[in-house]
Amino acid sequence: MTPSTAPADALLLLLDKHQVDTLLTPGDALEATREAFVLHSDREGRVFPVVREPLATGGVFGIKSGDVQAQGLLGFKAAGFWPANRQRGGEPHQATIVLIDPGTGRPLCLIDGNAVTTMRTGAAGALGLQQLARPDSTRLCLFGTGVQARVQLDFALRLLPSLHEVRYVGTGTQRNAAFEAHFAGRCDIAPAADRNAAVAHSDVVITATPGAGALFDLEAVQPGTHLTCVGADTRGKRELPPGLLTRVRLFVDDGAQAQQIGETQWAPDAPATELGDLLSGKTSFVRAPGDITVFDMTGLALQDLTVARLLHARANATGTGTRIAWPW
């Protein structure tokens, strides 16, 4: 990253959602997200304590921040969930990323974080699937039909070519034609007639909901299943049934953070392995036929920062974005 040349000449780069979409590919997101996991495993990147608090307006506001001192990378994401935005015709998830010059404390780049969050979370889920799911998995059960559910399924179909049958559980019992159309020709996709039966019949289960409560019964989860859990990202949220985490091989993105705001908050004593330790080679995992694996995803600040760094460099190289004077 390039620090400000002089106080009077300082510029702030702004990247909106359309510019992010233009600059960022799924392959980019996978590479940058993998790097973030490895940096975290090697403790070369720091993750600072998460802020995640409810608001009187009905929203939830959070801050995730961190740095990679050897790379001069510092920044944060201010983000949260405002459910009333749906009534306004807007997206309930909102996020803004700021990259900061660690030498001066001055902001370098401000990025619409929604697209970044969506893509890096999808990439994180995909890396979990590569490491943990059975490579011959053919059937997937998806809870949710929103933005994150869509990107998780998109990455799953990219990285597990054997997947061909998808059953989804949305907010109602009717078909979601627009959701299905997005995956036309890539899989056999249809709503689940019964959620427990769909879980029992699946090799992979992905939960990408607001985390209002358990989505299926404990008995539905069969040996050999892999579960990617996205929706529990705040104290009090959950998507898995009580008792499941004590029966599984549990993997997390960050141990302390998962115990604070993830599914792991409901079983804080359950042994867990950080996914980055698999990706860095610090540990290994060989799936036994009967293993049930869970990847509890709470999202790492480092993932936002490695993707943002890529966007910042690519925007500077291509002249993309808006630059405004930001004198000291």
Rank of each mutant, 00 (worst) to 15 (best):
Q222T: 14
D67L: 09
P107F: 05
T318N: 10
A178Y: 08
D233E: 04
I97K: 00
Q222S: 15
V47R: 01
E274Q: 12
A301T: 00
G185I: 13
I292K: 05
D9H: 14
D16G: 15
L275T: 03
L160W: 06
R106M: 11
Q69L: 13
K64D: 04
G321P: 02
Y168T: 01
G231F: 02
V147N: 10
A124G: 15
A198W: 04
A133I: 07
H182W: 11
G172K: 02
Q94R: 14
P7D: 05
I111T: 07
L13N: 06
H164I: 00
Q130E: 11
G80S: 12
A156N: 08
T283Y: 09
Q130D: 13
P191N: 06
L302D: 00
E53K: 15
E44C: 12
A181V: 03
L245G: 08
L110V: 12
V169W: 00
L13W: 01
V199W: 00
A32E: 02
G255V: 10
G224N: 08
F61P: 09
A192K: 01
A70K: 07
H312Q: 11
A184W: 13
A10P: 12
L73W: 01
A10M: 11
A78W: 10
T118C: 14
L140E: 01
G231D: 06
G66I: 05
L240W: 01
Q303P: 04
G281H: 11
N196F: 02
I63D: 02
V38R: 09
T225H: 03
Q87M: 11
H226E: 08
A192N: 02
T173G: 11
A29L: 03
V248M: 02
V230D: 01
V248R: 01
P268H: 10
G290Y: 12
L300G: 08
P327N: 09
V169G: 00
A212C: 11
W328L: 15
V199H: 00
R309V: 01
L74W: 02
A123H: 06
A313R: 14
T173I: 08
L245W: 02
A126V: 07
Q303M: 11
V252H: 04
A317N: 13
F76C: 04
P241H: 10
A78V: 12
L13F: 11
A126W: 05
T121Y: 10
E35D: 07
H312P: 05
A325E: 12
P7N: 06
Q259Y: 04
T273K: 03
W326H: 14
T22M: 07
P327Q: 04
G122I: 02
V169A: 02
Q130Y: 04
L73N: 02
T117Y: 05
T264L: 08
D136S: 15
Q130F: 07
L159D: 06
R186A: 12
V98R: 00
P26M: 08
A325W: 02
L311S: 10
D217H: 13
H182K: 06
R323T: 12
Y168N: 01
G146D: 06
K64I: 10
I189V: 09
V47N: 07
P107K: 07
K77Q: 00
A232M: 01
R247H: 08
T246R: 07
G80F: 05
A126F: 10
D67P: 05
A70G: 09
E53S: 15
D203Y: 03
R314Y: 05
